[in-house]
Write a protein that binds this DNA or RNA. Structure first.
Lengths: 186, 186
DNA sequence: TTTGTTACTGACTAAACAGTCAGCAAATTT
DNA sequence: AAATTTGCTGACTGTTTAGTCAGTAACAAA
């Protein structure tokens, strides 16, 4: 019913399958069963559509992660909360996550303010800094630690996507790899 | 002099700056100081040019890495050889490495046979399997370990690129992070 | 000398595409 | 009931771009 939503859904599907530039706006509208010009009624340009889709999905993901960690207290628990909530969300919304990856590795990134991208990372930075103080995390450059954490998360996601495990096995891998990460950092 | 080479160089420069689709073949030819049609004399299509550039750069990188490890013997030494040689090469050829990243995250990847992509990974797989046998590396799924190693490498590269350290500091970070990786795996 | 080949040119074309716009029907306001 | 606004349409256009092709100049082979 909601045409704006339908356009976003079709765009997501086609972008992930064919890429931004290989997906004409006409195809997006057609897939959504909506007139050509309507797309430009809702989104001024194609870029605006792409960016709207990105911020939309990103906030969905962030909402999920935030919810998962709200009741956690210890550093390890919170960090694990971040880690497993991100991976679980990514597994549950593969297409959306693939889109985020695509977007992050494209030139569109420059069109969004840096602050907007980095905004949701702030809590993790704080967490890590707190970890230094309490001497539980190795005292290395925060940016380096951060790079390691996101690299780890990213690669395990790739691994899980290719393997297509059962829910149980998935959870087991997430636990196992978090312990590896924790071992490395502490 | 060599026009084919000049086209590849111009393409590399422009692709990394603007992306594949935002770089018309006409601009590539112009940048190289070569006639429009000549590009299609050397490369049948734009895609063929992109793929040629990829395989070209990839083999340069692989040659460097192979050379660095040829005299190493112990498992740890060889793995470290791979790790640091890759990072050193990436730092020395930032544009080329950025191109590889861009390419890997694009739809072009599907156009290259999987075997060609995975071909150079074989030695690392062998290495890791050997590590299990000798009980020095944790007995986890090889694909998982492999994902962790490449994720680690990739993220430290990102870190080094953003920081722009001196050669010395760079080498230090590479050493340090390899030890972290090794600690995690063993 | 003639014939063929190779490397290269740049004007041209056909197709694709983002974005426009005049207009319409339904809902809302006056 | 009239006027205005909103949501939406789809035919159309100007531009951009990958790829073509007829031709040329230099050199070599027959």
């Amino acid at each position: 019913m909601d045409k704006r939503k339908r356009l976003l859904e079709s765009a997501l599907k086609l972008f992930v399958e064919f890429g931004f530039h290989e997906t004409p706006t006409s195809k997006i509208a057609k897939e959504a069963g909506i007139a050509n010009g309507t797309l430009f009624y809702f989104f001024a340009t194609k870029d605006a559509l792409v960016i709207a889709l990105y911020t939309d999905i990103k906030s969905q993901m962030m909402a999920h992660v935030a919810k998962e960690i709200e009741n956690k207290t210890s550093l390890k628990e919170v960090l694990k909360g971040y880690y497993s909530a991100s991976l679980e969300w990514a597994m549950k919304h593969k297409t959306k996550f693939r889109f985020i990856e695509q977007f992050t590795n494209s030139t569109y990134l420059n069109k969004i303010a840096d602050e907007a991208i980095q905004e949701h990372l702030q809590p993790i930075y704080k967490l890590l800094k707190q970890g230094f103080k309490n001497q539980v995390i190795q005292k290395l450059d925060v940016d380096m630690i951060f790079a390691l954490v996101s690299g780890h998360t990213f690669s395990i996601n790739q691994y899980l996507v290719t393997k297509d495990f059962s829910k149980n096995k998935q959870a087991k891998v997430i636990d196992e790899t978090f312990e590896l990460l924790w071992k490395m950092l502490t």
